[in-house]
Design a protein around this nucleic acid. Structure first.
Length: 293
DNA sequence: GTTTTCCTCCGCCAGA
DNA sequence: GTTCTGGCGGAGGAAA
């Protein structure tokens, strides 16, 4: 589990298929104090899964993970752990991701899973999946962010010397046939947009900053980030509003103004759509204060 | 809650 | 022949 026991806001419990000493493939000996019976007490189970996707899945692990899910436990996976969730049937009909190098294999083995190889993690509510190990950290920070808010997630990220927030839609690094030109496509335009959130930005403004046509910008941006430009912008606005709700005493109307959402009504609407809560509930949950305006 | 207007997204296609 | 770009237009959604 990637969260430091010291810095984690959770009680982190490493669990093995059975308690005792186990030897990893690279020869490391691990002592696991807890076996699968401990899953029954967990609120969230993070499955790191087999080292390789072609490793046989242990039936007792699949049964335990399935039983936990049926009890309502939140289940997350990191890297090849997604294969365990898929084998347990938890991903049937759902979007999921894993490391890009084994995404094709996941789609082949589990055709009922909608595999998205281009994102860092996928949040399907009770079931969450992530790409490579570093993306697993992003997923864990996403969970902290959901459970305890932006400030707590940032504190954990600082402790781990990690980026505080990389959205799930951010593209995985995948080697392409052609040379990567300039790395993260439109990163400068995204940064520029974040610095001008309060303004009435249109798709044409973003395309103009990127120096390409609206059509090309829209197409390449979506390929690069997994989200259409304006959906990405809306999420950035709501995320900034969340941070302002947590770290300031500003009213909803003022915050809506600062993040370019125009009115408190509009901010409430998008808060509800994206986070399924209200700004007031959000501030009360994470700060204990009420919201004005 | 309804209506109107405007914007975004996306498929299609032509040209480079 | 393939890939990429950019314009057009319709469908759907968002905002006022």
């Amino acid at each position: 589990v990637f969260l430091h026991r010291e810095s984690s806001p959770y009680d982190v419990l490493p669990i093995g298929a059975r308690a005792g000493r186990v030897r990893s493939q690279d020869g490391l000996e691990l002592v696991l104090e807890h076996g699968l019976e401990s899953l029954a007490d967990a609120d969230t189970v993070v499955v790191t899964g087999p080292v390789r996707p072609d490793e046989p899945q242990l039936p007792e692990v699949l049964d335990a993970v399935r039983a936990a899910a049926e009890e309502g436990t939140r289940i997350a996976s990191i890297c090849a752990g997604t294969f365990t969730l898929a084998a347990a049937g938890l991903l049937d009909g759902k979007r999921a991701t894993t490391h890009w190098s084994i995404a094709d294999e996941l789609a082949r083995q589990y055709p009922r899973v909608h595999v998205d190889p281009n994102v860092l993690f996928v949040d399907e509510g009770q079931v969450l999946t992530s790409a490579g190990s570093a993306a697993g950290m992003d997923l864990c920070l996403h969970l902290v962010r959901k459970d305890f808010g932006v400030r707590a997630a940032n504190a954990v990220a600082r402790e781990l010397v990690a980026a505080p927030y990389r959205s799930g839609g951010q593209v995985q690094y995948i080697p392409r046939d052609r040379t990567e030109e300039g790395g993260d496509l439109y990163a400068r335009t995204r940064q520029w947009a974040l610095e001008h959130l309060a303004e009435d930005l249109t798709l044409a403004d973003l395309a103009s900053h990127a120096g390409v046509s609206v059509r090309t910008f829209s197409r390449r941006f979506t390929e690069d980030t997994g989200r259409s430009p304006m959906k990405w912008l809306m999420r950035a606005r709501v995320d900034t509003a969340r941070e302002l709700l947590e770290t300031t005493d500003l009213g909803v109307d003022r915050i809506a103004d600062l993040v370019g959402l125009g009115s408190g009504t509009n901010l409430r609407l998008h808060f509800r759509r994206i986070l399924d809560t209200t700004p007031g509930q959000y501030r009360r949950t994470f700060t204990g204060r009420d919201v004005e305006g």
